[in-house]
């Protein structure tokens, strides 16, 4: 019988877009907390984008279900042992909070305790959704996905993707639906407490690169099942893995941001470099999730 992977590219799209959504949300909140005035435009844009991205991911997931109309039954037929059940809960929770949070931003109500509470809850649910993506795979026990590292890898990739998307918005100066008072706040902001995107860009790319290489190294030293899985991944996707995931998606962004920081620790990447590297990160992040999801579904040998 011919082997077909049960999950197709739509699951990768769900985890990619959902990851971008939670990454954008977390970085946007970080910007808001760090320097509300200077970064207000970007953090407002981030609050709009986050639920759109996670919602878009959920649409891909729904289109992959055999019976999408029964999706809500994961709530009333809830299985506490199933990570997928918890994931449904976390995603719905995040969507509700993120939509209210975006509305508060749209209305310019960004100072009260309600806003701070929503922000805190949003961060909590964003982390839960981000962790869920890797945990879902880890819980299924397939050799390539087993172990806790896959959780950190997916979360790191989501943060990096979210960060890159915000850098692109920043460089292109896009601001849609940002209240007028926020735009003037941003324009009047002082220059003494600037958030350094390049430093964060460099830090996340370094951590993610170490994690990816460490994960691959650990796989090569694991059981026969796992070794077979990683060998099969490299056989089918080796070129894409090394070229797009490692070199284009992690190494070049790492070196590019490092080069900028070496010249001047507090400077930012040039517009061209920031846009190019961010685009590479997004492509690399998608390729990473897609390859891991597809390769992890390879047929398992039946052995005594």
């Amino acid at each position: 019988m011919e082997w077909h992977a049960p999950w197709d590219i739509r699951i990768a799209m769900d985890l990619f877009l959902g990851g971008l959504g939670v990454g954008v949300f977390l970085i946007a909140v970080l910007l808001n907390v760090y320097d509300k005035e200077r970064n207000s435009k970007l953090s407002v844009m981030g609050s709009y984008l986050a639920p759109l991205l996670v919602g878009g991911g959920v649409l891909f997931l729904l289109s992959e279900l055999g019976r999408p109309e029964r999706f809500l039954s994961t709530l009333y037929n809830f299985n506490p042992q199933s990570v997928t059940s918890w994931g449904g809960l976390f995603q719905i929770g995040f969507m509700v909070i993120a939509l209210i949070y975006a509305w508060q931003n749209f209305k310019g109500k960004t100072n009260g305790s309600t806003f701070r509470t929503l922000q805190g809850l949003g961060v909590l649910f964003a982390i839960l959704v981000g962790v869920y993506h890797g945990l879902l795979l880890a819980s299924l026990g397939r050799p390539l996905w087993a172990g806790g590292m896959i959780i950190a890898l997916f979360l790191g990739s989501s943060l990096f993707g979210g960060m890159s998307l915000l850098v692109i918005l920043r460089e292109l100066g896009i601001s849609i639906g940002v209240p007028a008072q926020v735009r003037s706040e941003a324009a009047a902001a002082s220059s003494d407490k600037e958030f350094n995107f390049t430093m964060l860009f460099f830090t996340i790319s370094a951590v993610e690169l170490v994690l990816v290489l460490g994960w691959q190294f650990a796989l090569y030293r694991s059981s026969a099942d796992t070794l077979a899985a990683v060998n099969s991944m490299m056989e089918s996707y080796g070129g894409l893995w090394i070229g797009i995931v490692i070199i284009a998606g992690l190494l070049i962004p790492l070196l590019g941001s490092l080069l900028t920081l070496v010249k001047d620790k507090s400077s930012e990447m040039s517009k061209g470099m920031a846009l190019t590297l961010s685009a590479l990160v997004l492509v690399g992040s998608f390729a990473f999730k897609h390859i891991v999801i597809m390769a992890g579904q390879g047929a398992l040998p039946l052995i005594f």
Partner: peptide, 29 residues
């Protein structure tokens, strides 16, 4: 049974692993 988010896959009183087609959402977990 552990992976199923809707309890469509379940153990019965004879410890058989059975499937309820009415609960299944086709998630393939």
């Amino acid at each position: 049974v552990k992976a199923c988010p809707t309890k469509a896959m379940y153990k019965d009183d004879k410890r058989l692993t059975l499937h309820d087609p009415k609960k299944c959402i086709g998630c393939k977990s």
